[in-house]
């Protein structure tokens, strides 16, 4: 279990990195935290001809607020985000989701940009960003663009990134006042990828009715799934048990999560329904206590 040979570059600036990507695009892989890529390389299941290691680019590691939005630099480590007080306060869904990511050693090294670019449908952060209507700033020598979650995550381990593009940052809009959010998942062992999970946000109006809901599901399909008809169904409801239950049933309609040795499609559908119900219940409680 030793990796195959590869060429290696470790640029110190964004410009250098983009130059290298423009030159080697197709045959190279970007090395961010490496917590998903290096295991695959050790098994020789991934054998990139060249690695572009962006760990020396300090300018990509930051957390800042911009016009009320949270902007997270791509090379921000999970631990950094997990411990940021402003995140815990303004975007507690992210803090809660990160608590489910691997273990401390993984979170100390793994990066936010790496997680979204890897696009594992069983990963927590892509789903949390999906529930939060996040978008992704990407750049190449050809220019910059911002891609919404709905276009960014294409399929299993596939994003809308072109071979010469690099994720620069994640932008997360602020949650409205009166909102509550929750992240719930179940894995066979704590720290493993989820068998099923749900990231939800809810906004309550003054009259206690739901004004807005977002539901993103983990391990539900080839990419994070937004349960939009369930979201719609919750709008105007009082978020009582029966409306939450009905929305959870709606959320999993038509889903075909992949069966594997840890759980069949049928089991996973049931689990996703339960996780959605629990996340909604939790988020509703939190929304009520915040108003």
């Amino acid at each position: 279990m030793k990796p195959a040979q590869f060429e290696y570059d470790d640029p110190e600036t964004e410009e250098e990195a983009l130059d290298l990507l423009a030159r080697h695009g197709d045959e190279c892989k970007v090395l961010a935290g490496g917590q998903s890529l290096v295991p695959l390389m050790n098994f020789r299941l991934a054998r990139p001809a060249r690695l572009i290691d962006i760990n020396r680019i300090d300018s990509l590691s930051y957390i800042k607020r911009e016009d009320g939005r949270l902007v997270i630099g791509a090379m921000t480590r999970h631990t950094h985000l997990e411990r940021a007080a402003e995140v815990a306060q303004g975007w507690p869904l992210l803090t809660e989701a990160i608590g489910w990511v691997g273990h401390a050693q993984i979170r100390n090294r793994g990066t936010i940009g790496g997680s979204v670019a890897h696009a594992d449908p069983a990963a927590e952060l892509p789903a949390a960003f999906t529930a939060l209507d996040a978008s992704f700033q990407v750049r190449s020598k050809r220019g910059s663009r911002t891609i919404g979650w709905d276009h960014f995550f294409v399929s299993e381990f596939t994003t809308a990134l072109a071979p010469d593009e690099l994720v620069m940052a994640v932008e997360v809009p602020a949650l409205d006042p009166g909102s509550g959010a929750a992240f719930v998942e179940y894995a066979r062992r704590h720290g493993d990828f989820a068998l099923g999970g749900a990231a939800v946000t809810l906004r309550l109006g003054r009259d206690g009715h739901c004004e807005k809901a977002t539901i993103a599901l983990v391990s539900a399909g080839p990419a994070p799934v937004r349960a939009s008809s369930a979201e719609q169904q919750l709008r105007g409801s009082t978020l009582d048990d029966s409306s939450i239950r009905a929305a959870s049933v709606e959320a999993v309609k038509g889903l075909r999560p992949t069966s594997d040795l840890h759980g069949s499609t049928e089991y996973r559908i049931g689990l996703l329904r339960t996780m959605t119900e629990r996340a909604l219940t939790k988020a509703a409680q939190r929304a009520r206590s915040s108003t």
């Binding site: 279990m1 030793k2 290696y8 470790d10 490496g34 917590q35 290096v38 295991p39 050790n42 098994f43 290691d53 760990n55 631990t79 273990h103 401390a104 050693q105 993984i106 100390n108 090294r109």
Partner: peptide, 27 residues
Amino acid sequence: CEHGVCGACTVQLDGHPVRSCLIFAVQ
């Protein structure tokens, strides 16, 4: 395990515990 699960190779990099099987020496 050499794939980042068992933790036997944990060292501290700049004070933080990391899996040394998932980092290249050059890094």
